[in-house]
Amino acid sequence: MGAIYRREMSAFFISGIAYVFLAVFFLLSGIFFYNGVIASGTTETSAMFSSMFIIVLFLIPILTMKLMSEEKKNRTDQGLLTAPVGLWSIVLGKYFAALTLFIIAESVVFIYSIILGYLGNVVWSTLLGNYFAMLFLGAAFIAVGLFISSLTENQMASAVASMLALFVLYLFDSLASRVSNEHIQKAMTAVSFYSRYIEFTQGVFDLSSVVFFLSTAFIFNFLTVRVLDKRRWG
């Protein structure tokens, strides 16, 4: 797992994806920070975090798009799959590499908190709560993106499909309100990423949501492992 993790980390920087990802993330989060926090004359960061849901949604597919698809396209998966490593090591090595980059990106909020510290009192409890909420959200989204990347050989297809999938997940809330059947509506709200995430930004630390995000991450990583396994039996 370590070898794959290190290779993916260096590949992020060699290919330039890391720079694009970080630059766009910093730029957009900076805009939200200025508009939502500084310009409104508050030290309350929740508004910024709730707006960042949509950035995460569109940026994570850029991180995950080529993780699996390019291996298949260049036939380098043959090297990985015939090496004495398990499928979980391969998937998790890639998963944690993407997650690490995401953590680096979202940790920019600590720089914002230093700026806020000059202007007033930072509300650390909401800031940290939101920070971790976003971490869990990213953990789940990356697993979804990684899974979709394992289904195709084309990284553009992988990116577009992942964005679409995450966008549908985002829309689940508004779709749910249109559904008349009460049970389906309930089920849809229960798996709504957005409402669970927004709950955090409003200062509610719900353990069930943490479990929800982590188990989503686990399930999609599991599915990715199954895809790799199934390919052998094809």
């Binding site: 070898a3 260096s10 590949a11 260049n74 380098t76 090297g79 015939t82 090496a83």
Partner: peptide
């Protein structure tokens, strides 16, 4: 194993690639 198409990561140097395979194995 040397497959028909060698499983090479084109953007790595020879040294870092072999180092990676060393760790992987």
């Amino acid at each position: 194993y040397l497959p028909e198409i060698p499983p090479l990561y084109m953007d790595m140097t020879v040294d870092s690639y072999l180092g990676f395979m060393f760790d992987l194995k």
